[in-house]
């Protein structure tokens, strides 16, 4: 609902502005991580990964368990990203690879099936009830007051991490050998394979990278949300 009075009052006050801007940043950065995974995959492989939400979920659940066992949030994030990557590579090489040439609806169907299976497996492993990870102890501190606004330190960490990962990804795709090969393969896969490069391997790797981003976003966001099965498909809204 639009409330222009509130908007104008808010724009006039620094405190409100600071709070709102950081709020926008935090939501934006997490969405950005998820979206960049989708874009990365779509840009190179020309396939829309409708099942991207499932990897977000996998990341969140793995992070939950890792945190419960190890008690270290940073390790939990890494574990979340890794598990999503591994399952992503499997998903690519066993299923998605077979429908690259098919029409959009066939790809959608494969993703839908994957999401259904993931949701039920998650339910079997973790149960259907919601799980809450809780804010890690190191971030259970009072929010920082800045120019009258309120900014939780945990969100500063989230935004910074997301930014860092984004920059790393950009560098990887632009400058690394992996990035160059993948981009070349996207332009002309046959030519690249003639040069003796195993293109399918690189495609699987790229798919895994995209999924890792989603898994990482899920793991990063895990402390502030409850994890529950059934949110695998990319929500249209």
């Amino acid at each position: 609902m639009l409330n222009f009075d509130a908007l104008s009052t808010c724009l006039g006050a620094t405190s409100c502005l600071v709070t709102q801007v950081t709020t926008g940043l935090i939501i934006g950065m997490l969405l950005f991580l998820v979206a960049s995974g989708v874009t990365l995959i779509f840009g190179v492989l020309k396939v829309v990964n409708f099942a991207h939400g499932a990897f977000y979920m996998i990341g969140a659940y793995t992070a939950y368990t890792t945190y419960a066992v190890v008690g270290n949030y940073y390790l939990a994030v890494v574990a979340g990203a890794l598990s999503a990557a591994v399952i992503g590579v499997l998903f690519e090489s066993l299923m998605i690879r077979r429908v690259y040439k098919e029409n959009l609806l066939m790809q959608l169907l494969v993703c839908y099936a994957f999401v259904l299976i993931c949701d039920d497996l998650v339910k079997m492993i973790w149960g259907a009830e919601y799980l809450a990870m809780g804010i890690p102890a190191e971030f259970r501190v009072p929010p920082i007051r800045f120019a009258g606004g309120v900014v939780p330190p945990f969100y500063i960490f989230l935004v910074a991490t997301s930014l860092l990962v984004a920059v790393l990804c950009l560098l990887l795709i632009t400058y690394s050998r992996f990035g160059k090969i993948v981009r070349a393969a996207a332009a002309n896969a046959t030519m690249v394979s003639v040069l003796g490069i195993r293109v399918p391997l690189y495609f699987a790797g790229l798919f895994g990278l995209g999924c890792a981003l989603a898994g990482m976003a899920g793991a990063l966001a895990a402390p502030r949300a409850v994890a529950d099965a059934g949110h695998g498909l990319v929500d249209p809204d």
Partner: peptide, 14 residues
């Protein structure tokens, strides 16, 4: 679950 998520997030803002 909604209440849990709301409380976890709201606690961050004190």
């Amino acid at each position: 679950g909604d209440l849990v998520a709301f409380f976890d997030q709201a606690s961050l803002y004190g």
